[in-house]
Design a protein around this nucleic acid. Structure first.
Lengths: 188, 188
DNA sequence: CCTACTTCTTGATCTGGATCAAGGGCGTGT
DNA sequence: ACACGCCCTTGATCCAGATCAAGAAGTAGG
């Protein structure tokens, strides 16, 4: 659980006796390629740190899937929406590559929030990060054309093109795979 | 500042001596119809509770405005994105009707977070609420057609139709005023 | 190594909603 | 009270991107 410690330390400082309470709450989970981390309709019981792999977050509607984001590399994963509401999930989270996630149960996290103020601060800071991330995406979705969204992704997240299929990236950018392919040919 | 107390009490319980620290941090501000609560490019220094009036949150891009939300009735207002990043704002907040907002400065809120754990919890809970709200909107934007978005608004937020101009609602629903008007004629 | 499936590409066509245009009505400030 | 400006409506046209279609190229499992 060294990654848990390093990840939390980026936000708050904990005393040794606090680490002794925090670290045992985290468990390691393996997900194979294609398996579901969170299912829509079920209450998400865990919040995850990504140790390995790439996952996608999407909604289903009328049989089609709309990708809202990816998670990877020492960041967060899971259906945060269902996790904070503790109500049935509206999102699905799927492992796109074999993944190792470190998860904490909702009950345990709430208990830590109550006993360790620095952990509640960590929770607040994570939420700030998630909220700012969603705001950024919303601005891009709202104001940019398909071509501009494509260009911005190529500039800012070139690693995604390596790790994720074009159809998933296309869905994330709110366009069809055909449109994505044509932009690739046109823009480069 | 009775509204501040009632609003915070919906989330956490504070002792009298804690209220004595919290309440003096809040100030009342009046905004006239059309005036700006937050400007893009400037760092938002305050987070607000709405005592009176309706405000809209929007982004500008290439000279056109895209509305992301409205605030009213004892909920939150201000550019939360700039406020949490403490970086230049990407949004504009404008009073659509004469408004009375109760605001707290960023510095004061951070100080309260440090001295009163319950206030940090309040901060976390507010962020959860904001995040879930954005997730809800994102799902609706992504998966629904213009007509479905219109119907859902009429069902779920009929009060907005009373208080806000059709062109602002149209922008919020990601359509032109013309499309909105046609849907109104068609759907009712 | 082969077979079957999925992904990516490229072309042709279609369409939801935008844009352009113009008239009428309502509010608001003087 | 009046006039000016914004808001709303309705019609005509346009276009970015979706959909439909059909190969080609990977790639995973037997």
């Amino acid at each position: 659980m060294e990654l848990v410690r390093r990840t939390i330390e980026r936000y708050v400082h904990l005393a040794d006796e606090e680490w002794a309470l925090v670290l045992p709450c985290w468990e390691r989970f393996n997900f194979e390629r294609g398996s579901l981390v969170s299912t829509s309709g079920e209450v998400e019981d865990r919040f995850y740190i990504v140790e390995e792999g790439v996952q996608r977050l999407f909604v289903e509607h009328d049989g089609s899937e709309h990708c809202l984001g990816f998670s990877y590399g020492h960041s967060w994963s899971g259906d945060y929406d269902s996790f904070v509401r503790q109500a049935p999930g509206r999102f699905v989270v799927q492992a796109l590559t074999p993944s190792v996630l470190l998860g904490i149960r909702h009950l345990d996290l709430m208990r830590l929030y109550g006993t360790i103020p620095a952990m509640e601060r960590w929770g607040r800071l994570i939420l700030e990060e998630l909220l700012v991330g969603r705001a950024t995406r919303e601005i891009e979705q709202i104001a940019l054309t398909a071509e501009e969204r494509y260009k911005r992704l190529v500039d800012r997240s070139p690693h995604l093109l390596q790790q994720v299929s074009q159809k998933d990236i296309a869905s994330y950018l709110r366009m069809t795979p055909e449109t994505f392919s044509r932009l690739r040919a046109k823009v480069g």
